[in-house]
């Protein structure tokens, strides 16, 4: 599944403009504790969380993730979006809960 397909499936908005939305999503994870995410982070991962600050982007970049999806209507600040664009990690926003987003991804075969 691509980032764009993930956005369509979950009704999420892609807020990064310059990041390639056709990049592959290889696996998924949902958690709000950064050390857990750091331990489990993988290349190509889609990470669903309510953490939408700079450090969340730093974790995603270090783990070579594809995208970070902010759940529950949480918004990324302009500066965070800019950082993610520089680093090439896509950011998505959705009003759905992390549980719903993860369920949809899992159902579509993202493990």
């Amino acid at each position: 599944m691509t980032i764009r397909e993930l956005a369509d499936l979950t009704g999420a908005t892609i807020v990064t403009k310059t990041v390639d939305a056709d990049r592959e999503v290889k696996c998924g994870y949902a958690c709000d504790l950064l050390s857990w995410v750091m331990a489990r982070g993988r290349e190509g991962m889609a990470w669903v969380t309510v953490q939408a600050h700079m450090n969340a982007v730093a974790v995603a970049v270090l783990a070579d993730m594809s995208c970070v999806a902010a759940a529950e209507g949480v918004k990324f600040d302009e500066a965070v979006v800019q950082k993610a664009e520089e680093e090439g990690v896509a950011l998505l926003e959705t009003s759905k809960s992390a549980y719903e987003v993860a369920g949809l991804l899992y159902g579509a075969g993202v493990r």
Binding site: D32, L33, L34, S35, V37, M38, A39, Q51, H53, N55
Partner: peptide
């Protein structure tokens, strides 16, 4: 609140 403080940092380093 920012997602730190799981107490997993040092164990992650050691691992």
């Amino acid at each position: 609140m920012l997602g730190f403080g799981a107490g997993m940092g040092l164990p992650n380093m050691k691992r």
